[in-house]
Amino acid sequence: MIIKELKILRQHGIQYVPDLKTAVLTPLFRGRPVIKEDPTDQETEKIKKLCPSNAITTEDGFGIDIGKCVFCKECALAYPDKIAFTNDYKIASNDKNNLIVRKGDSEIKFNENIVRPEVRKLFKNALKLRQVSAGGDNSCEFELYAAGNVNFDMGRYGIEFVASPRHADGIVITGPITENMSEALQICWDASPGPKVLILVGTDAISGGMFADSHAVNRKFLEKYPVDLYVPGNPAHPLTFINGVLRLIGK
């Protein structure tokens, strides 16, 4: 009877997070890394050997590329005085260069200059996305689905996942783009009408992650089209995704 439902509803309470930009995650959440001190050359060699996904770069000084980082935190656990992972989840950016964290960086910057004007003009109030899982391990897919649930509710900004690419304003790719899925991805891209955005979610999508060198992976698709947003994470937290998209559409 209704009484039971009312009881459940009362316990359910109000679930939505009121402000998605100022929510705070649990302290251990592995978000943006900070480099407190540059490691020595010897330490850098050891860290490079330690990193499972080749995310350490030494051009222009020591840096962690969070587009390649799988957020395993082994480097911070081995050298806690040099590297630490904060619980800052706003790590999405539209410029791949901004994904490299160096000493002294206090946030992941978003590059307003390279945002295509039609993206701001057309998608500010409603962005319908088609998600394509091209070899994802299902964790990013779960998180993207959760971004629309009763807690995060990205629908309040007009962001939604649609079923047909014909209705889509953009394609969201998760997974490293396997060979077996590459043709399907191309067909999906061709089927959605322009102008459209391309968003990569998760380390696997941005750089191939652990599968960058696998023969079963074919990332030629990404060489053809400009990417509008990179959302790092393993998996990318829904707040990372939503904040990234909000920055992209200018909200």
């Binding site: 047909s164 690419p165 014909r166 043709e183 399907a184 991805l185 067909i187 999906c188 061709d190 089927a191 009408p193």
Partner: peptide
């Protein structure tokens, strides 16, 4: 207007 094949869930 673009003309393309009918969307068939990308089955090739």
């Amino acid at each position: 207007t673009d003309i393309g094949p009918t969307w068939g869930c990308a089955y090739t």
